[in-house]
Design a binder for these strands. Structure first.
Length: 597
RNA sequence: GCGGGCGUAAUUCAGUGGUAGAAUGCCAGCUUCCCAAGCUGGACGUCGGCGGUUCGAAUCCGCUCGCCCGCUCCA
């Protein structure tokens, strides 16, 4: 599987280079890590994906509008969004094994008897006095979940203040159980680690009562707490006290504005297009006569200073996003979240990603970012692994509230219609004829739910380059087609959905004589005039020309032959089935247009 | 960021100190009435880059850049 996958990626990258889909950026200078260029075929494919998205998301709907924001924004935007402070990963290195870990995803587990080390007692006291939650009760270890969450676990058993056994996450269940047996703890109840993780960023403990009545405590500590423990164990190599202090890696790409480069000139290349949308929420609302629920769509470049770009174009430092921010009433957010998740998932299937390779993964509660109430990833099974194409999140009113707070501008929405329907409840006669009282009550009601509120946001955020790569992977196909002697020969074909294919139509004269080139040329010109991406080729054997188009993923090839001269019909060949059908030359453009959607 | 592998024509690769190679592709022409491997001819390489060793480096050494794999990472 792994070997085949690599082989497939190698073949695909070679084809992309050879046929002009994707080139390495600055190739003649040795390239640059994390940046890629799209060649003539690649740019058509990518543009078709963006156009299909824009058409389906904006043009065909009446609850969506578009936007195109600047890449560089006032740096305060990124303070409000949390990217300047939060878009950074504290990393811890192990001096022993050179392993690198995210400090905020490291957890240290200690099993202790209540009378064990003073340090833990001290910590527990601190926790008690600081009102931090102390978790007690059910314990279950869901190893799959831990691994998928990318959490590194260090399982340290501390009994009588001396280390007896260490183990990694994969062995945790067995370890806990064997230790429990050894220590005569008896049957361990289940530890629910998804619950644990909510607490373990700081400190939590679970109490287990053994058969003998002896009490054992499992302590879970995040790095911040655990760093004072002795020993502190590397989760990978289990070396003691070998971890460095955390270092910050900020993923924001910086630049500077103006001639002088000092701290006041610092600016950032946006890491997502979303913030431009939030900043323009009021502008759109005030100028478009649009009402909730509605969404704003944007396609554009974003930049992240990835520590380690990998997997061809999948994780690039410069990439393009297709983002929607859909604003709705908080009470309807759940409904719209599910709606968009399904719409976006199905969009990929409609455009040719097989559902067997596409999956929708709902995030566990503990996996959610602090601002999100729900999140689902639309994932594709790439040859190098299952990875995210698009994320759909319910971001609540977090973003608008943040910008309201940081900018001092009102970001609330007033529902005129709802108020119109309700305002009769606040007429003076409802308040014993007291107009003043009625107005006060009306003003109070008006400026609160359900009439005035900060909208919730549903964000479907997709990667254009990731989608392009997925469509490329999905399209790549090796099958067999008969040669001129009817013998099956290997054929490489890119089976793009016709709507996405870079070239829609190729036109050939069967032979380069007897007036065929002229007729073919005319069909080609008509196709170009009609806006179809078409290609004309009269050189060499027709079979070779078909095969070339197969590699480019052209869905239809029209051939002018001897019969055309008699009755003005041509053959049109289907890329996937290789079947040909005769149609009048004048209907070629219409035929293709009908099939590319 | 660590470890491993690799970098020679557009692509896939051979070439282990002595004149830069093959196949495919590409171009021109011929042939060809329908699916690449028929014929003839042709173009194409600062051997990733820089430095060192050597009479001489694609080949050995150092550094560097890039790609791939594993780990790590992916608010």
């Amino acid at each position: 599987m792994a070997e085949n996958s690599n082989e497939l990626m190698d073949k695909l990258t070679a084809l992309c280079k050879r046929r002009g889909f994707i080139f390495q950026s600055s190739e003649i200078y040795g390239g640059i890590n994390g940046f890629w260029d799209y060649g003539p075929l690649g740019v058509e494919l990518k543009r078709n994906i963006k156009d299909a998205w824009w058409t389906d998301i904006v043009r065909k709907r009446d609850d969506m509008v578009g936007l195109d924001c600047s890449i560089i924004m006032n740096p305060k935007v990124w303070e409000a969004s949390g990217h300047v402070s939060g878009f950074a990963d504290p990393m811890v290195d192990c001096k022993q094994c050179k392993g690198r870990f995210r400090a905020d995803k490291l957890y240290f587990f200690y099993l202790q008897t209540p009378e064990s080390s003073a340090k833990i007692k001290e910590l527990r006291q601190k926790v008690a006095s600081s009102n931090l939650p102390v978790l007690e009760g059910e314990i279950s270890v869901q190893v799959d979940h831990i691994m998928r969450g990318g959490v590194s676990l260090s399982w340290t058993i501390e009994a009588d203040a001396s280390i007896e056994k260490l183990s990694m996450a994969g062995d945790m269940i067995q370890t806990i159980q064997s230790i429990a047996k050894e220590k005569n703890v008896g049957d361990l109840k289940k530890i629910n680690l998804s619950e644990l993780r909510n607490y373990s960023s700081d400190y939590s403990e679970i109490t287990i009562e053994g058969k003998s009545g002896k009490i054992y405590v499992i302590t879970v500590m995040g790095y911040k707490r655990a760093k004072d423990m002795n020993p502190l164990v590397c989760p990978k190599c289990l070396a003691q006290n070998s971890l460095t202090e955390p270092r910050q890696f900020n993923l924001m790409l910086e630049t500077s504005l103006g001639a002088l480069q000092d701290s006041s000139s610092k600016a950032y290349l946006r890491p997502e297009t979303a913030q431009g949308i939030f900043c323009n929420f009021k502008n759109v609302l005030d100028t478009q006569r649009i009402k909730l629920p509605f969404g704003i769509a944007q396609v554009g470049k974003s930049f992240r200073n990835e520590i380690n770009p990998r997997n061809y174009t999948f994780r690039s430092r410069e990439f393009e996003q297709m983002e929607i921010e859909f604003f709705c009433h908080p009470s309807e957010a759940d409904k719209w979240y599910e709606y968009w998740r399904d719409v976006r998932y199905n969009w990929y299937i409609t455009h040719g990603l097989r559902s067997s390779k596409l999956r929708l993964r709902n995030h566990e509660k503990d996996e959610l970012a602090h601002y999100a109430r729900a999140c689902a990833d639309i994932e594709y099974e790439f040859p190098f692994g299952i990875s995210e194409l698009e994320g759909v999140a319910n971001r609540t009113d977090f973003d608008l509230s943040q910008h309201a707070k940081f900018s001092g501008k009102d970001m609330s929405y007033f529902d005129d219609e709802a108020w119109e329907a309700e305002k009769d409840k606040y007429t003076p006669d409802k308040f014993g004829g007291d107009a003043k009282l009625a107005k006060e009550a009306a003003d109070k009601a008006k400026n609160a739910m359900p009439f005035r509120f900060t909208p919730f946001v549903i964000e479907p955020s997709g990667g254009v380059d990731r989608a392009t790569l997925a469509f490329l992977c999905e399209a790549y196909c090796e099958d067999t087609a008969p040669d001129e002697n009817g013998k099956p020969q290997a054929r490489t074909v890119m089976k793009f959905h016709p709507r996405l294919a870079p070239i829609k139509l190729a036109v050939f004269p069967l032979v380069k004589k007897e007036g065929m080139p002229e007729i073919a040329r005319k069909i080609y010109d008509d196709a170009k005039a009609a806006g179809l991406a078409a290609f004309y080729d009269e050189k060499g054997a027709v079979g070779r020309r078909y095969r070339r188009q197969d590699e480019a993923g052209t869905p239809f090839c029209v051939t002018v032959d001897g019969q055309t001269i008699q009755d003005q019909t041509v053959t049109i060949r289907d890329r996937d089935s290789l079947k040909q059908e005769r149609i009048p030359a004048g209907q070629v453009v219409e035929f293709v247009k009908k099939r590319i959607g």
